[in-house]
């Protein structure tokens, strides 16, 4: 099934927001291919009628009452910010939709 190409690695890197260097693209292509090749055996059970397990313990309905709890102070909230302005997180221009 595998055979991960350099282009696929580049696509994954874009999805994951990693600006990989050209040599990393090749390196990861090889390694991901090896790893996926090794772990692909899980698909042996793909058509088995087994329910998937997403949570190790069968807990349900864990909820909290709608009661206000103290927030951080804005100083605490912004304490790790690489840049701030007007009590807001300052970030480079956003390439949004418009």
């Amino acid at each position: 099934m595998p055979g991960i190409t350099r282009e696929e690695v580049a696509h994954l890197a874009r999805l994951a927001r990693l600006e990989l260097k050209p040599e990393e693209l090749d390196h990861f292509a090889g390694q991901l291919d090896d790893i996926i090749g090794a772990v692909a055996r899980v698909s042996e059970v793909a058509d088995q009628d087994v329910p998937p397990t997403s949570h190790p313990l069968p807990l349900t309905n864990v909820m909290r009452p709608d009661e206000v709890r103290p927030s951080l102070s804005p100083e605490q909230a912004l304490s790790g910010a690489p840049a701030q302005e007007q009590q807001r997180f300052k970030v480079p221009q956003i390439l949004g939709e418009e």
Binding site: I4, A16, L32, V42, Q48, P51, T53
Partner: peptide, 26 residues
């Protein structure tokens, strides 16, 4: 991160992530 992005991406989810969750049940 790359491996996980791959395993969750459309077209591969069932074969990889989905199957892994079934293995978990087993």
């Amino acid at each position: 991160i790359m491996l996980g992005t791959y395993a969750l991406s459309s077209g591969y989810y069932d074969a990889y992530y989905g199957s892994a969750q079934k293995v978990r049940t087993l």
